[in-house]
Amino acid sequence: MTEYKLVVVGAGGVGKSALTIQLIQNHFVDEYDPTIEDSYRKQVVIDGETCLLDILDTAGQEEYSAMRDQYMRTGEGFLCVFAINNTKSFEDIHHYREQIKRVKDSEDVPMVLVGNKCDLPSRTVDTKQAQDLARSYGIPFIETSAKTRQGVDDAFYTLVREIRKHKEKMSKDGKKKKKKSKTKCVIM
């Protein structure tokens, strides 16, 4: 069974824990209790493949930012979460993405942009803004509501699919490099 290491990042209060708990335990946590770091595991079937999701729910508070490099190193894919009623959390996505790329030393890291709290009427981040940002990053965008469960499975499952595509691409690139290195030079 394939294991996928997913990391949920975003500013404090955007609903990272609520999304994760909704996926794992099928219930909505409405009281806000700032996370330092929590880890969850769940076995699911995605596109006919049974897999184990190892999900790291991270601290959004700035005082825990020193811990970010460590979990970013171990993560295979990242859910970059903002709240649709919090423009600052949307603007912060850029910083999370840049930090992930720096730590992973790669421009090509599996990510999904997630606009959470889409059940709320007080939207300050337009869907088109988020779609445009995701398009500019070359990553999928999904709106979710941890409260109603809308888009929750889709967000995590899409990230797994992005990781699969990335692994497939990397193995193809690896095979191309191996083929090239088999060419021999004969000096007579």
Results as ranks from 00 to 15, higher is better:
181 S>V: 11
182 K>S: 06
25 Q>K: 03
10 G>K: 01
73 R>C: 11
74 T>H: 12
186 V>R: 09
14 V>M: 13
46 I>W: 10
178 K>D: 11
158 T>I: 10
46 I>E: 14
143 E>V: 03
105 D>R: 06
13 G>I: 06
67 M>T: 08
5 K>P: 15
175 K>W: 14
62 E>G: 08
133 L>G: 04
121 P>W: 08
22 Q>E: 09
165 K>T: 15
177 K>W: 05
173 D>H: 07
112 V>M: 13
160 V>E: 11
84 I>C: 13
95 H>Q: 07
12 G>D: 08
61 Q>T: 12
68 R>A: 13
105 D>T: 04
113 L>H: 01
119 D>W: 04
90 F>W: 11
32 Y>C: 02
136 S>Y: 12
69 D>L: 03
50 T>H: 12
100 I>L: 14
69 D>Q: 09
132 D>T: 05
26 N>M: 06
52 L>W: 14
78 F>Y: 09
150 Q>M: 02
153 D>K: 06
126 D>Y: 07
51 C>L: 13
16 K>N: 03
55 I>Q: 00
53 L>M: 08
71 Y>T: 11
56 L>G: 14
28 F>K: 00
38 D>A: 00
151 G>D: 05
184 K>E: 06
77 G>H: 02
47 D>S: 08
26 N>L: 03
130 A>T: 10
18 A>R: 01
84 I>V: 11
3 E>P: 05
37 E>L: 02
174 G>A: 07
7 V>C: 05
185 C>M: 15
74 T>Q: 13
136 S>K: 09
21 I>L: 05
33 D>T: 02
155 A>E: 05
119 D>N: 13
77 G>V: 12
45 V>D: 13
141 F>C: 11
155 A>D: 03
6 L>E: 02
162 E>W: 11
123 R>Y: 08
137 Y>A: 05
172 K>C: 14
81 V>E: 12
45 V>I: 07
28 F>M: 04
107 E>Q: 04
84 I>F: 12
44 V>A: 09
8 V>A: 06
13 G>W: 12
117 K>N: 14
37 E>S: 01
105 D>G: 12
173 D>E: 09
27 H>L: 15
164 R>H: 11
183 T>Q: 12
103 V>G: 04
111 M>C: 06
180 K>V: 14
164 R>D: 12
156 F>Y: 12
176 K>F: 06
86 N>E: 09
137 Y>T: 08
11 A>F: 14
37 E>Y: 15
19 L>Q: 15
122 S>L: 06
58 T>V: 03
130 A>F: 14
21 I>R: 01
79 L>D: 01
125 V>E: 09
183 T>C: 04
84 I>E: 15
86 N>V: 03
63 E>K: 06
27 H>N: 11
62 E>F: 08
59 A>L: 00
122 S>I: 06
65 S>H: 06
158 T>V: 09
141 F>T: 02
44 V>L: 14
117 K>W: 14
95 H>S: 14
150 Q>F: 03
56 L>H: 03
58 T>W: 01
11 A>Q: 04
80 C>Q: 05
103 V>K: 03
38 D>E: 00
72 M>T: 08
28 F>Q: 01
107 E>W: 06
114 V>K: 00
45 V>T: 13
65 S>M: 08
178 K>W: 04
62 E>R: 04
183 T>N: 09
41 R>A: 04
24 I>C: 05
69 D>E: 11
91 E>A: 08
69 D>R: 04
27 H>P: 00
9 V>N: 02
31 E>Q: 07
138 G>Y: 03
182 K>W: 03
186 V>M: 04
64 Y>I: 07
148 T>A: 15
32 Y>H: 06
104 K>H: 10
51 C>F: 08
139 I>N: 04
152 V>N: 11
60 G>A: 02
8 V>E: 06
78 F>D: 00
24 I>E: 02
62 E>T: 08
76 E>I: 12
63 E>V: 03
61 Q>G: 12
56 L>Y: 04
126 D>C: 06
134 A>G: 12
38 D>P: 00
122 S>E: 09
122 S>G: 10
83 A>S: 15
28 F>G: 00
160 V>F: 06
42 K>R: 11
